[in-house]
Amino acid sequence: MNVERVVTSGRFTLDGGTWDVDNNVWLVGDDREVVVIDAAHDAEAILAAVGDRELRAIVCTHAHNDHVNAAPTLADRTGAPIWLHPADSELWRMVHPDREPDHDTADGDEVTVAGTTLRILHTPGHAPGAVCLYAPELGTVFTGDTLFQGGPGATGRSFSDFDTIIASIRDRLLPLPDSTVVRTGHGDDTAIGAESPQLEDWIARGH
């Protein structure tokens, strides 16, 4: 069972602003089948990483354009379904007005790939439909833009809320084992145990 990272580059656009970003695209699986978490920017690079393996699902941690802009092309080329929490439908339609996701993701859903289960945790705040994927057998959680090394994801733009993201992190992520590796949507990995002591500092800074 492998966890692979492909870093793709492009632009994040929201509220009239545009920023250059590097995104982590995660592939979880073995030599026969994989799941892609966040099809960002470059469908060809992701397809090259998938290779001749079966792509079981394209799971979106949220629907900001930089996390979903390559998803329809990837789905069309592979036949894999796109999973998205319906609370992010409005954000999705800003990017893909003519293509709906294939599967509504819900809290507690499970994605199974190569005998390993990824459990969906609904963690709103950065976006209403933000989710994380927890793989207890791998000792890792894929957090999208909910939790990074050093703090929560941004909440200064439309559809986001600071108190909500703090509650999501406190209630859904920090109870995970301290050794759980946090694989983020941008930047470096961290661990639950490295981030949990900082919760009160984040709250103080946020307000």
Results as ranks from 00 to 15, higher is better:
3 V>E: 09
8 T>P: 08
9 S>E: 14
14 L>I: 14
16 G>K: 06
17 G>P: 01
17 G>R: 15
19 W>T: 14
22 D>H: 13
23 N>S: 15
25 V>H: 06
26 W>H: 14
27 L>A: 02
28 V>T: 06
29 G>E: 01
29 G>H: 00
31 D>H: 05
34 V>R: 00
34 V>A: 12
34 V>W: 01
38 D>P: 03
40 A>L: 07
40 A>G: 11
41 H>K: 03
46 I>W: 12
54 E>S: 08
55 L>M: 08
55 L>F: 03
57 A>H: 06
58 I>G: 07
59 V>G: 08
59 V>K: 10
60 C>F: 03
61 T>F: 02
62 H>T: 08
67 H>S: 13
67 H>W: 05
67 H>D: 11
70 A>P: 11
71 A>N: 04
71 A>H: 08
72 P>Y: 14
75 A>F: 06
79 G>I: 12
80 A>Y: 10
81 P>G: 08
86 P>D: 12
89 S>N: 11
90 E>A: 12
91 L>V: 06
93 R>E: 15
95 V>Q: 05
97 P>A: 09
99 R>Q: 00
101 P>S: 04
102 D>K: 02
107 D>V: 03
108 G>F: 07
109 D>R: 07
111 V>W: 01
112 T>S: 01
112 T>M: 00
114 A>W: 01
119 R>P: 08
119 R>L: 12
119 R>S: 11
120 I>D: 11
121 L>W: 13
126 H>F: 12
127 A>S: 13
129 G>P: 03
129 G>C: 04
130 A>F: 01
146 T>H: 07
146 T>R: 07
148 F>P: 00
149 Q>T: 00
155 T>A: 05
158 S>L: 09
160 S>L: 01
160 S>T: 03
161 D>S: 04
163 D>V: 09
163 D>W: 13
164 T>F: 00
165 I>A: 08
170 R>G: 06
175 P>G: 03
176 L>D: 00
176 L>T: 08
177 P>R: 02
177 P>M: 03
178 D>K: 14
179 S>E: 11
180 T>P: 10
180 T>W: 05
181 V>S: 12
182 V>C: 13
182 V>W: 01
186 H>A: 07
186 H>P: 02
187 G>E: 03
191 A>D: 11
193 G>A: 09
194 A>T: 05
204 A>D: 15
204 A>H: 13
